[in-house]
């Protein structure tokens, strides 16, 4: 098996979990207040979310995406209040 093939089996998923629009975000509101207090007068709103980096092995892009999708729906996001997006990329280093 070539080195290139081996590295292609490792993937990095960058996952963003954010509150659904309409769900009050006390953390974002507090940060907004702090920014305004620091005279960032142009700031119009802050929504705080979570960013996760998950490394995994998968046969190909589609398989990696399917696994990350399952991680998000099972554990990483709560569908009552959150939504998620993610991107996956092969780890080459």
């Amino acid at each position: 098996m070539s080195e290139a093939t081996i590295t292609q089996t490792h993937w990095l998923a960058r996952i963003y979990v954010t509150l659904k629009s309409g769900v009050v975000d006390p953390q974002g509101d507090t940060i907004l207040g702090a920014l305004r207090q620091l005279h960032f007068d142009s700031v119009a709103g802050v929504r705080m979310g979570k960013y996760l980096e998950v490394t995994l092995t998968a046969a190909d892009d589609a398989a990696a995406r399917a696994t990350v999708e399952a991680m998000c729906t099972t554990l990483l996001a709560n569908p009552v209040i959150e939504r998620y997006t993610f991107e996956v990329a092969p780890v080459t280093s």
Binding site: V24, P26, N78
Partner: peptide
């Protein structure tokens, strides 16, 4: 119990933090 789906809803960070 909410996370487990045995009760509906979710508990967010307190308003006012």
């Amino acid at each position: 119990l909410c996370e487990a789906g045995l009760l509906p809803g979710a508990l967010r960070r307190n308003a006012g933090m």
